[in-house]
């Protein structure tokens, strides 16, 4: 994946999303969950659970541990890396992000694909 293949979309101003909070967005027609982790890192992931595509933004979020639990079936993800904790081995698709002049941008690959991982429950 090269930078040239990305379309950068302006998402929000950094000071609109406090550390420890997240935003549920639709970017380029795709559901995207943007997390502002405690410590300052900003991450963007697929907005639906890879299990059965329930909206992750409706789940339970623990800002201190950075763990998000999907409301659909209790699947847990470490949002600092987008990796599954329970079950392990299921990873969220991560979009590139950048901050430019106080504005957060999310990069969407222009490859005609839908950007998400799916992990059937077994």
């Amino acid at each position: 994946m090269t930078v040239a293949s990305l379309a950068w979309h302006e998402a929000f101003a950094v000071d609109e999303l406090w550390e420890g909070d997240f935003l549920d967005l639709e970017i380029d027609g795709e559901p995207v969950l943007v997390v502002h982790l405690v410590g300052g890192a900003i991450k963007a992931y697929q907005g639906v659970c890879p299990h059965q595509e329930v909206m992750l933004g409706d789940g339970d979020w623990d800002e201190d541990t950075g763990v998000l639990m999907c409301g659909g079936h209790r699947w847990e993800f470490d949002m600092s890396a987008g990796v599954g904790i329970n079950p392990a081995g299921c990873t969220l698709y991560e979009y590139p992000t950048k901050v430019d002049d106080g504005v957060v941008f999310v990069g969407v690959p222009q490859d005609g694909e839908r950007h998400y991982n799916r992990c059937p429950g077994s």
């Binding site: 079936h73 209790r74 059937p120 077994s122």
Partner: peptide
């Protein structure tokens, strides 16, 4: 919150 957990017995059985 219970149902979402125990419902997950189905998928491994189908598999």
């Amino acid at each position: 919150t219970d149902e979402s957990r125990h419902a997950q017995q189905g998928e491994p059985t189908v598999k």
